[in-house]
Structures are given as structure tokens and as C-alpha cells.
């Protein structure tokens, strides 16, 4: 049970700050799950759990699925896990400094980068929405429902 969570922690840490999260953050990430702090009220749907499992495969997938969740399911299990990871990273040095230091580019470059981020975000949301359609269908039909499943992983 702990292994997928540890893998998930590693991937989400790398996705958010580009580095492994370390032992302390990993222990806290597991503790938060054990305490039931992450589950959405009423439990997560089968689709949400599938999305988390896909996001676990690597930082690129995590980012794409995070973009999708930001638009279509902001309070979903994946977003909650990622926000927890961010909260853990920001209270622990040296991650805190790493995620909160300006990039140092010029203002013009910053606005150009912002436009690029926006375009990439929109494209990613579009592609993942299409790619997840079969998954959504499978979860809805294959599982017989989109019902919420409570309890820890």
C-alpha cells in the first residue's frame, strides 16, 4: 500500500520542485494520507483514482493531468494530493527557497514566458481532455458507476 504512495510522492515532488522531496517530506506525505487529510469529502471517484494512478507515471504526466484537473476538477483527489505536496515543500528548507525565488528574467521575458505558459496550458488541457475521454467512459461503464469510493488507498 505504501509503495504507490512513495512513488507518487517522488513523482509529485519532482514535478513541483524539480528535485526529490527527501525523507522528511516523504514521511509527512504518507502521514497525511494515513490521517485521511487528503480524501475529498465523500471519497474519491474511480475516475479520480485512475487519474492519480496515471499521474504517478512521471512528472510530465503529472503536469498534464494537473492541468486537466485544474479546469475540470479543481477539488479532485489529484489536485488535493498536489496541493498537499506543495504545502509540505513550502514549509521545509531547502525546497521552500527553491519554489519561491524569482527566475531573474527581464520583465519582457517574463510576460513572454507567461503567454507561452498560457498557450501550453490551454493546449495541454485540450489534449488531456480528449485523451481522458476513453478513461472516463471506461470508469463510468466498466465499473458500472462513477460512484465515490471512500477510505484510504
Amino acid at each position: 500500500m505504501a509503495e504507490p504512495l512513495e512513488r507518487e510522492c517522488e513523482v509529485f515532488g519532482r514535478y513541483l520542485c524539480g528535485a526529490p522531496p527527501g525523507d522528511y517530506v516523504r514521511a509527512q506525505y504518507l502521514a497525511a494520507h494515513a490521517a485521511g487529510a487528503v480524501e475529498p469529502a465523500g471519497g474519491a471517484t474511480r475516475f479520480e483514482r485512475t487519474v492519480v494512478a496515471l499521474a504517478r507515471s512521471g512528472p510530465v504526466a503529472a503536469r498534464a493531468l494537473d492541468a486537466h484537473a485544474r479546469v475540470f476538477a479543481n477539488g479532485s483527489l489529484l489536485r488535493r494530493k498536489l496541493v498537499l505536496m506543495l504545502a509540505l515543500l513550502e514549509v521545509r528548507a531547502p525546497h521552500a527557497e527553491a519554489i519561491d525565488t524569482p527566475t531573474g528574467s527581464s520583465t519582457l521575458a517574463m510576460f513572454a514566458a507567461l503567454v507561452w505558459l498560457g498557450l501550453r496550458f490551454a493546449f495541454t488541457v485540450f489534449v488531456t481532455a480528449l485523451a481522458l475521454l476513453p478513461v472516463r467512459l471506461y470508469c463510468a461503464l466498466g465499473a458500472g458507476n462513477e460512484g465515490r469510493i471512500g477510505g484510504a488507498e
Binding site: L16, R63, D66, A67, R70, A87, E90, M110, L117
Partner: peptide
Amino acid sequence: ALIHPIVQSVPFDLRSALWVFRNAHA
């Protein structure tokens, strides 16, 4: 201040939102 409540409200994925936030925090 804890930044995760603000970063999550930026209308991007969290990695992009962090990039926006770290340049805008001050």
C-alpha cells in the same frame, strides 16, 4: 505566509502557477 492557498488559485497547473507566483510574490 504559507503560499499554497494562493498558488492553487492561479488558473494554471501547479508547476506553472508556482512559476507565476515566485515572480509575483513580492
